[in-house]
Computed example of a mutant assay.
Amino acid sequence: MTKFKNTISFIQDTFKTREFIPLHQPSFSGNEKKYVLDTIDSTYVSSVGAYVNQFEEMIAEISETRHAVAVVNGTSGIEVALRLVGVESGNEVLTQALTFVATANAIAYNGATPVFLDVDMDTMGLSPQSVENFLNEFGELRNNGCFNKKTGKRITACLPMHTFGFPVHLDELLKVCTKWKIPLVEDAAESLGSKYKGKATGSFGEAGVFSFNGNKIVTSGGGGALVTNNSKLGISAKHLTTTAKKPHSYEYDHDELGYNYRMPNLNAALACAQLENLDLFLNKKRSLAKKYEEFFKQSSLKFRTELPETKANYWLMCVELENLEERNEFLIETNKQNVMTRPIWKLMFNLPMYSDCYRDDQVNARFLEDRIINIPSSVI
């Protein structure tokens, strides 16, 4: 008998199988095949097509923003968003070390350096207090922006990530960023459908970016979307991601360094069908989260739930173990029983390419790194 036998049995009973239970698999219960076949019949399978436009309209409505730009993945969307808010080579960007590597990579793609600040224990996302503490110690406001007075580098963005769909403390973070004149870009890759004080994540900063990878709550196979309420930024984002090509019926004229980052119509068709069922997916996930919450009340494991005044999409559900040893034991036992579980990510500064980046004490991030595990979270 294993220590976590009851938990494993509960998950197997909930998903009604003793076979392999994935962490998160897509649910195709709507018009996915119909729309994808429609793109094939139309021959418009690449980055031009009606479904790309429809997808952008749907995402703008869901995210409560004026502009949405379809891109090939969330990472590319963050890369472009950072460039558009002014991030350049040699700059610094404030972010969290407890995140998926794409967050840090998007900063590096712009030639900038991540500054890793601690997360809040309750959100697992970038802590406004950590940002304020860093800026009070190292920040210096000049006529042309905020600078790190120790390194001399300009701080050109703040990039929080809504971990597993749980919104960060956005009001407090925005207050700090406004005070120090630093643009906020939301890495909302995991938080489609999440809300903070009744307002959609992705709509608070200068820009927000969602991911539609195969394991997300809504998938396009591979894809992302950059959203913004800034019309100039939205227009520029579409231009840059379409190789910066100037409109013309036949000439190839490009006016700046652009990217071939537009989402293909084939992927957009899949995403449109998925988005039609977003509310259904969200409701089913909340139902699963409620079952987990009730079960883990009788357990030593702590199930992570949304905070007051927020509504999480519960993309990947997670539990907190007592310590690293128990975490590892849980991972071994569950996976041995075909119940897929995964630890939270390694802290970014523990990866070789980011080992020299500044980090603060990371007390909360280190605690969570040793204890947080994702459990099966598929729509059922």
Score class of each variant (00 low, 15 high):
Asp361Asn: 13
Pro167Glu: 07
Tyr109Thr: 04
Thr241Val: 10
Met340Arg: 06
Cys177Ile: 05
Asp118Phe: 03
Met58Thr: 06
Ile375Phe: 08
Met340Leu: 13
Pro264Thr: 12
Tyr196Val: 09
Leu347Val: 10
Leu347Met: 08
Glu88Ala: 04
Asn260Leu: 09
Ala106Pro: 04
Asn6Leu: 05
Thr17Trp: 13
Gln54Pro: 00
Phe15Met: 02
Phe303Asn: 08
Thr103Ser: 10
Ser29Lys: 14
His24Ser: 08
Ile59Ser: 01
Ala157Gln: 00
Ser355His: 10
Pro26Gly: 06
Ala207Asp: 09
His239Gln: 08
Thr113Ile: 13
Leu192Lys: 09
Arg83Leu: 08
Glu64Gly: 14
Thr39Trp: 04
Leu159Arg: 00
Gly198Asp: 08
Thr103Asn: 13
Lys179Trp: 02
Leu98Thr: 13
Ser377Asn: 05
Ile107Tyr: 00
Tyr109Gly: 00
Asn136Ile: 09
Lys336Ala: 15
Leu159Ser: 00
Ser300Tyr: 07
Leu170Gln: 01
Leu351Ser: 03
Val119Ser: 11
Ala200Trp: 10
Val185Gly: 04
Gly258Leu: 12
Trp180Glu: 01
Glu325Met: 02
Gln96Tyr: 02
Gln337Asp: 14
Asn374Gln: 06
Pro114Ile: 09
Gly234Asp: 10
Thr305Val: 15
Thr156Gly: 02
Lys3Gln: 13
Glu276Leu: 08
Met263Val: 03
Ser300Ala: 10
Val45Gln: 13
Leu37Gln: 10
Met348Arg: 01
